[in-house]
Amino acid sequence: MAAGLGVLAPSSAAAGRRVHPGDSIQDAVNYARPGDTITVMPGTYYENVLITKRLTLRGYGARTVIRPPVTAVTPVAPVTPQAPGATGAPVTSGAAQAPAAKPPAKPATSDTPATSGRALACSQADTGICVMGTAEQPVVDVDIHSLTVSGFKRNGIWASYTDRLSVQRVISEKNGTWGIAQERSTRGLFRDNTARDNAESGLFIANTVDREGGATDTLGAVVRRNTLTGNRIGVTVRRVRNLSVYGNNLTGNCGGIFVVGDEGEPGAGDMTIRNNRIHENNKFCKGNSRLPDIQGVGIVLTGAEETVVRSNDIRGNVGASPLSGGILLFKSFVGATNTDNVIRDNVVRDNKPADLANQGTGTGNQFVNNRCASSVPAGMC
């Protein structure tokens, strides 16, 4: 029976598994042993996928598409997962989605209460791929490669309590919140992905999403060579430290890169943003209770410290929002200041109302050797 579903029986010692159209990716994940590689063949798969163990999930890029399930199940009450905050958004009642378009085979791994809770939370959150560990046992070395996740009500890919998660060459598009998102995690690698037309951030990295608190150390997370277009914000890094954002292409979003902190300790920052191309992020996004309207935003630092912004090419970001312009140090809405940041060696041209702006009462911020035409206050170019 397992062979007919496109997965290997649990007694098999093979490290490679293939999933074909009509089969369930979740079945293959359930049967996989730690370290296995699951290859998802070209086709469209209608399901949510939950990963709680070390493995590689690999497809064929734009030819392997994961979309929301088409078969609804009976509405269920809200569920609190065993891993606090694992869903990445409040769990609400309503019609949950079936984990696959066809009934899954009985998983080979034991269905512990923790795993069951996380699976239901993933389905209720309506996310394409969930990678979820716990505070006591983070999921280590998950690799998601060359897949498309499209049209989910919440997120394309969501990760919580992970270490060394790798997401590469993934297309995440038209999702209702984030394209690719991670919280409570360390040493993540996000490279060569395309995140487009997502309702919030294309790429989102945070300490936690269900409470306030000081910034956490990502231990060197990397956001590299991604293409972010048509999102509300291209890349958001919120209340985290010690990571790099470089070599990315951001255009057609409402805003390019946001570094967000608050008054918590330690402060957000201690990161490098370099060699990014940030052009014409002039889509208009209406404001909400946390942010004003967003349009024409290159890079915004708010409540950040000890961050280096260098060697970026930032052009043609034009808008009338309080956040509009090329590179902006913006006063935090909760009173946190920008301190000891270095803005240097950037090409910042044709951004309005200004190429460079330094607002608020933060101290120790430096603007050095930037090629620009206008600044607020004057004299920084």
Rank of each mutant, 00 (worst) to 15 (best):
T80V: 13
V308Y: 01
G303V: 02
D355I: 00
R118P: 09
D141Y: 02
T148F: 01
R349A: 10
R184L: 12
G4Q: 14
V91T: 12
L8M: 02
E200G: 14
N365L: 00
T229F: 14
T115G: 13
A15Q: 14
G255Q: 01
T56H: 09
S289C: 11
N317A: 00
P322C: 04
H145Y: 15
G6K: 08
V300F: 03
T87G: 14
A268P: 01
A304R: 04
N351L: 05
G267P: 13
A72M: 06
V140S: 12
A9E: 14
G94V: 00
T272W: 06
V223W: 01
S321K: 08
T177Y: 10
K331I: 14
I314L: 05
D313V: 06
V308C: 00
P322V: 08
A86G: 15
I314P: 03
S110H: 14
I294G: 07
N242D: 15
F367K: 03
L147E: 04
I25H: 07
G255Y: 01
R33A: 12
N275D: 11
T74D: 10
F367T: 05
V237N: 03
N351P: 02
P42A: 13
S123A: 15
G335P: 08
V259N: 03
V342Q: 11
V297G: 00
E136F: 04
L203H: 01
T39K: 05
A195L: 06
T87K: 04
V167D: 03
C254T: 03
G362H: 05
F367W: 05
V348M: 01
R232Q: 09
R238H: 10
R349I: 13
I257M: 07
V376Q: 13
D126Y: 06
S311G: 12
A159S: 12
A83P: 14
T361C: 07
V19A: 06
Y246C: 00
S375R: 09
S123L: 15
N351V: 06
S321V: 11
A357L: 03
P103D: 10
N369A: 13
T52H: 02
R310L: 09
E280A: 15
